[in-house]
Design a protein around this nucleic acid. Sequence first.
DNA 1: ACACACTTACTTACAAGTCAGTAAGTGTGT
DNA 2: ACACACTTACTGACTTGTAAGTAAGTGTGT
Lengths: 211, 211
Amino acid sequence: MADTAPARTAAAADRVRKPQARTAERREAILKAAMDVFGANGYHKGALAEVAEQAGMTHAGVLHHFGSKEGLLVAMLKYRDGNEVAGVPARAQTEGPAFLQHLVDTVEENTHRRGVVQAFAVLSGESVTDGHPAHDYFQDRTSVLRAKIAGVLGEVSGNRDERSLADAASALIAIMDGLQVQWLLEPDAVEMPRIVAATIDRLVADLTAAA
Amino acid sequence: MADTAPARTAAAADRVRKPQARTAERREAILKAAMDVFGANGYHKGALAEVAEQAGMTHAGVLHHFGSKEGLLVAMLKYRDGNEVAGVPARAQTEGPAFLQHLVDTVEENTHRRGVVQAFAVLSGESVTDGHPAHDYFQDRTSVLRAKIAGVLGEVSGNRDERSLADAASALIAIMDGLQVQWLLEPDAVEMPRIVAATIDRLVADLTAAA
DNA sequence: ACACACTTACTTACAAGTCAGTAAGTGTGT
DNA sequence: ACACACTTACTGACTTGTAAGTAAGTGTGT
């Protein structure tokens, strides 16, 4: 009885909010600006006001959409994983050998996406500090990716030794992440795709031989 | 003639400054505190006041010694390279094969020095941003280390192909750096020394075979 | 041996700026 | 009519860096 909100289209218990038409694209603009700003300055030094300015509003407007700076960071990370091309761990669909090629392709693509690479390099570095809002994200991301890579390497090489597989997966992830930092510091000094491809070949050959 | 400053004990042009007795150890205390604070929070989030407190003085006292926050960071980086155990690139003395073992030993030592590892992980991540005060330091450090490792790998393997050598060196540095981040996020998930040792073996074997 | 000149090593207080977050109001689409 | 998408205006917490003052040390001439 007290609940007599007439015929509000089944919306009884839910406080769902209906976004306006352009809301989705505005939020996306903010997320892209966040990639840019956090990528260029890191999370702590990156200012909400700068993100807002790039998205064409004030910093309070950004907070209206994401609640807090931390909320924006988390949303940005998830957005990138879902939508961006380089969402490596997400596409768990890709089958065995093709997945390894996909890794190399992604590295190659990253060569043309300096901003994204920089954002992830800076953020993953920051994330190891105590209580950093992106800590859990990077921890999960790494362990999921490691499991996936270990699985594929096992498939491809026929090797079944869990430890060797996990070590190889860790090494491969480390190579990809580590090279990005070197490349950002000195773009002409390292050719990421070639080195990653060579590393994968070495790893697979070694695991196959030991199988 | 106009220069007739009587007999002021020869001290005409020199304005030499002599530090007091305990100064050296006070500065060292500040540098250690800086490692701690910048390691735990990063450079941008790490506050001078916290460094000062850990060193037993006020933030103005710290500035007296190092001029600016940036000056403190640079001093800290140089101090660590000079004095700490892990000064990999500094000891260019170590000969060929022993150097590779030295790398593995250093990684093993780092396992017991979480603070130092964290400081370098956070700082090297931050350093790729535009105009970061540690940018040049990490750039130089990486390129010196790469040249050194490439040289040693050439020695050990007999391989003389510059590009293969440089690629292998880049890969090795990437592995070491990348593993540190993974280890910091999930200490039990990766055994750094074993993976680094295995990587070196693989690299050397491969280069030797191709020679 | 001792006072004088000067430096070093700080402290307290403050200036000037930046930052995230909040509250309250305005306009617009549905 | 009303919720949503903002803006303007502001607060409070923190920042680095500076200015000015003080106590203690160092060195030199006599």
